[in-house]
Every structure is written in C-alpha cells, then in structure tokens.
Amino acid sequence: MSIFDLPSYVGSSFPGLIATQLEVSLGAVAAGLVLALPIGQACARWPKLYPPVLSVATVAYSIPSLAFFVLLIAYTGLTETTVLIPLMIYSLVLLIPGVVDGVRAVPPEVRLSADAMGFGPARRYLQVELPIAVPAIMASVRIAAVSSISLMSVGGVIGNYGGFGDLVSWGLHENKIRLIWLAIASLAVLAMLCDGALLLLQRTLTPWSRGRSGRKRAAQ
C-alpha cells in the first residue's frame, strides 16, 4: 500500500482531492481577481473611494471562515460554492490593494504617450496599463492563492468540501494520524508549488522586469 492510498470512506482518491483543492481555492482567487480588477481600477481613479472600500473588505475578511461556511449553507446548500464564496471574498482584501498599487505604478507620461499614439481606452488598458500593473497584481495573487489553499481546509469541518481538509477530519474521526500528516504535507507542498507556478507566470508576463519580484505588497 502506498502512502497515497486513501481509505474508501474518504470517498475520493488522492488525485481527486488535489483536483478539488485546486479547483475551489484557485477558482475563488480567480473570481476574486475578476471582481478586484474593476474595483481596484475605480479606487485608483477616485482615491476617495479607496479607504471605505478597503474597510468593507477588511470587515468581510474578519468574518471567521467556519462561521461564514456554516451561514452560507442556508443559501447555497452543501456545495462547493459554499466554500468558494467566502474564499473569494477573503481574497479581495489582498487583491484590491494589489490592483490599486499596480494601477498607480503606471507613470502618467506613459498613459499620455499611449493617448498621443491614438490608443483607445480599452486598448490602452489592455496593452499598456495592465502589463505595467502585472507585478504588483501578481504579488497579491500569489499571497491570496497560498492563503486560499490553506484556508479552504476549514471546509472539511462542514462536510466534504474542504479538499485535503476532509482528510484531516477523517483522520481525527477514524483516529488515523497518517491521514492528517498526509493532508498537511500535501497542502504545504501544493501551496508552495502554486506560489512557484504563479511566480513563473509573472516572469513570463513581464520579461522586462526579470529579477524584480514585487513581494513587498504583502503587509495586509
């Protein structure tokens, strides 16, 4: 028996758990980014908007994950969405400042040059502003992804939607400490690998800034 074999009551194979884990935790960050891009853009454009938006995100972040999952069961039932929505909302508190910092990093003269070259607003955003903002945004995405992978395991308490968190619950209930070790090691390795993969993606997206990773936006 290999260490990756799981007892049948877990109801999932090791690769199956990896798939659920990545799908929900990274899906949540992706959904968060889709929300954070326009919100962050608006906050950078109208600076008065930024403090209240950040306060709301911080307060939402302070809702305990366990309680958030449980309360959502009433509305979304016991589905993956119940775990995904809180993770998405938590990611906003990291992603919005990332987007705002990224947009602010675009020098005004670059924006003006793009205007002078006849770029429309959409093209200017996609081809000029977004690429310059990528390092700051990706730094926040990496932190959000790593946190999301770890946080999702709390979903194991409410049912079968915690990815490797389920394995922790089963290990406790069935007194199989091997499963708990396996879950922790897998989660840590998975989180590190995701961090590395996202760093690689960032380097690919911004070949001009090699060696300057913007990890400094991590204070939140």
Binding site: S147, S150, S153, V154, W181, L187, A188, A191, A218
Partner: peptide, 21 residues
C-alpha cells in the same frame, strides 16, 4: 519572503488537529 510563504502554506486547521492528536 521564503519564511512568510512557508508559514502561510502551513494549513492552520490541519496543524491544529495534528498537534491535538
């Protein structure tokens, strides 16, 4: 950076259960 990422990657819930066991 490495220390912070490593600490973040540790699943709080799993660690709690493991240490209690």
């Amino acid at each position: 950076s490495v220390l912070a990422t490593a600490a973040r990657a540790l699943p709080t819930f799993g660690l709690l259960v493991l240490l209690t066991v």
